[in-house]
């Protein structure tokens, strides 16, 4: 590549050229449709987010029957709310208790339950998170500002292309009688990956 940049014309980086070449080829062969790509990106960026997952968790907190169904067969329970995976992945819900804290990682290919959590955050895909979460989960949690009692076991779940995990965080105290909608506001994306806890109800009031 020439180093005497001429700023009069446009320039695409090597990687952008590769991506455009692929898009042109796949479009010409009829496998993809550029406007559908835009729509998909938009959906993942803004429409799904972690809202779907938060609704699942809030319903499990509020409705014991739904809770039982979720723990028994998360794929079906999540589908009840209309959220089904694009890749046909199998979902498993793991629940945090005073004794056990669950945390999800993918050590190899960063599989992520997009349907319920939207797009993975940058750090989830980062090599340091992937390798350290398994070796030193307590240290990683500390970096996220989460410190758990010594006696709490930390269980790290390695998601795969076939099985993806949804952490059900502990329901915060002081939320008796709350509606599912209000409860869902306490459920952060990180709390469903296990790198965070559900929000404190007092924080929600401050933010509101």
């Amino acid at each position: 590549m020439s180093h005497d940049h001429d700023h009069e014309h446009s320039e695409l980086s090597d990687i952008e050229l590769r991506v455009r070449a692929l898009e042109t080829l796949l479009t010409e062969k009829g496998y993809i449709d550029p406007p559908a790509l835009d729509e998909l990106i938009e959906t993942y960026e803004t429409k799904i987010g972690p809202k779907n997952g938060a609704m699942v968790v809030a319903k499990a907190w509020a409705d014991p029957d739904y809770h039982a169904r979720l723990m028994n067969d998360a794929t079906a329970a999540i589908a009840e709310l209309g959220f089904t995976g694009r890749q046909g992945e199998h979902m498993v819900a793991v629940e945090n208790t005073a004794e056990t804290h669950n945390m999800v990682v993918c050590t190899l290919c960063s599989c992520y339950p997009w349907t319920v959590l939207g797009l993975p955050p940058v750090w989830y895909k980062s090599a340091p998170y992937r390798s350290r979460a398994v070796r030193d989960p307590r240290g990683v949690l500390a970096e996220f500002g989460v410190s758990l009692p010594e006696q709490t076991n930390i269980k790290v779940w390695d998601s795969t292309a076939e099985v993806r995990y949804l952490v059900v965080p502990q329901r915060p105290a002081g939320t008796d009688g709350w509606s599912e909608q209000k409860l869902a506001e306490l459920v952060t994306r990180d709390s469903m990956i296990g790198t965070g806890l559900a929000l404190d109800p007092s924080k929600l009031e401050e933010a509101a």
Partner: peptide
């Protein structure tokens, strides 16, 4: 990750 907890609607953890 900013450690400040944010509401599910707008918490993104930076650009995806």
């Amino acid at each position: 990750i900013q450690s400040i907890p944010r509401l599910p609607l707008d918490q993104d953890g930076g650009p995806v």
